[in-house]
Design a protein around this nucleic acid. Structure first.
Lengths: 145, 145
DNA sequence: TAGTTTTGGGACAAAATTGTCTTAAATATA
DNA sequence: TATATTTAAGACAATTTTGTCCCAAAACTA
């Protein structure tokens, strides 16, 4: 079950890492993140460029440069990131891949899947990077194998 | 959100179609299914070969040949098909892609995702091809765009 | 037996995803 | 100014997924 692409998975892990560095101020370099989380630097850079272009991150070049969240981590939710990296129709896909599957022309698993998606969307809508970052800071949860 | 591969999606649609042809006896040809559901014949054939090799389908060559469910459709559940086409670890994947993510070493979204997966697994465990086939036969639900 | 129909299986191609590399641009510091 | 650091951007390669094609094997029919 691969719900999120690698790009999204890496992006999310990296953002939660940033949120977990609570007392830190200023920019965090992509190099640091990729090292700490064991993610390909170049691949992460591309994902971060997308996030920067869509207003999730701001970046700054040069020494002591890096990336920073554009908003406090408690105002950035999983849905925001997923919408940028997976598309705004992320929570609107038929389990059987039928285009236009909906109440008026449902596939046989539509009712169940609609409820499952709603539960997931609800969780994504209400889970902030801050919340996940705290879990990591407070040590019971991990971001790396 | 792409939970199932195309191979699985096509396989499931095709199996539900077979289950929906209630009064039919004997083998159904892959050609018929691929035409009716608008699925690539060769691609579906490969997926069906996998299902045959794993005991979900039996096949028979020659005129009036085709494939047939090895069990009554009310004894074949979504989990059975998904286990064959996606792997037995389908319901055991970390949302953030961390290997070995579990109670003892969870990622920050582990608790939520565990519950979401369990709900999905429960539904897959208890939804038979017969049930879905009936929905299609009884006309309110569709298998094709 | 010859010809047709159908699945089996493999080779192969196309497309999407993932990953790597190089160079440029911006910024800081010495 | 020269050098080092860091993101930006795009080319490119590797891998996986998806899709196509061909021919063999099995089975039926005439």
């Amino acid at each position: 079950m691969r719900v999120l692409s690698k790009a999204t998975v890496y992006g999310l892990r990296a953002l939660v890492y940033m949120a977990s560095e609570r007392e830190r101020t200023g920019y965090v370099s992509i190099g640091e993140i990729s090292e700490r989380l064991n993610i390909s630097f170049h691949f992460l850079t591309k994902t971060f460029q997308t996030l920067t272009q869509h207003g999730i991150l701001e970046s700054y070049r040069g020494p002591n440069g890096g990336v920073a969240l554009t908003k406090p981590a408690d105002q950035l939710f999983l849905t925001d990131i997923v919408h940028v990296l997976e598309g705004v129709d992320f929570f609107d896909k038929c389990l059987l891949g039928l285009p236009g599957c909906g109440t008026f022309a449902p596939c046989p698993v539509h009712d169940f899947w609609k409820a499952a998606k709603e539960a997931m969307k609800n969780e994504f809508d209400n889970t902030s990077l801050a919340e996940l970052g705290e879990k990591v800071t407070d040590e019971r949860f991990r971001l790396v194998a």
